[in-house]
Nucleic acid binder design. Sequence first.
DNA 1: CTAAAATCCTGGTGGC
DNA 2: TGCCACCAGGATTTTA
Length: 269
Amino acid sequence: MPELPEVETIVRRLRVPLLGRRFVQVRITWPPMARPSVDVINLRLPGQAVTAVARRGKYIVMPLSGGDTLLVHLKMTGDLRVVGPGEASHRHDRVVFDLDDGQQLRFNDPRKFGRIYLTQDPASIVGQLGPEPLDEAFDETSFAERLGRRSGRIKAVLTDQTFIAGIGNIYADEALFLAGIHPLRRAAELTEQEKRQLYRVIRQVLSAALAHEGSSLRDEAYRGGRFQELVQVYGRSGQACRVCGSPIQRVRLGQRSTHFCPVCQRDAR
DNA sequence: CTAAAATCCTGGTGGC
DNA sequence: TGCCACCAGGATTTTA
């Protein structure tokens, strides 16, 4: 379930091997993944070079030399990486891009939820996304003001990509814990102080996760264990809250599990 | 208009 | 040990 920090880490990892590379050929073995279609991608992608590797929300965005943009969404289980010519193929490789230097860009995705888009109008894909939480332009005042106009549960608002981009189930739960806000509270009913606090911890938790991902980039051996230490509530239902010791609760909100501490995050509605 | 539910998928897990 | 039901959730689509 890659969210903003994980996608940003993958983007940074791809940038050096991909920048300036030209696509030679594509093989898409799971056609429903391709938008608008396998045929369009096969026809238009070869010959175009990668002019940038960027991120918008959870989308990986690659503008190309021929005027198209290649976008990739990893959804739940996708992974995108550049491998050398000799690398054995993997079981869930869904798209393999041959590059002009002999390397390959591979999109591996067991669950087949991921998507690749080739378009001349990237705004048609990412244009409706909300602000980037780590950008300078993301400001506290308009965040608070927009929260005031949302009647839904705060957890659902945080995972709404048109409200704010890049936050998924994990970091929504984590941010709400750090802000001491119950996930079922109505967004518009938060106090001004709670809205300010939420703005602050969203940036805090995403930055910390990004820093952690960055360090795991340099030291892959650290991966699994450190994530568990970082997490306060996600996936910890029944375990003791790290602050007050109460058992972490899990409820369903929509189709998603939501984890919180019933003591540190009060005022259910 | 909003909100909730169904949908797509397969690997991993827990129960028996 | 094998089998099976069920769970994980991002975003879109459908339904109320």
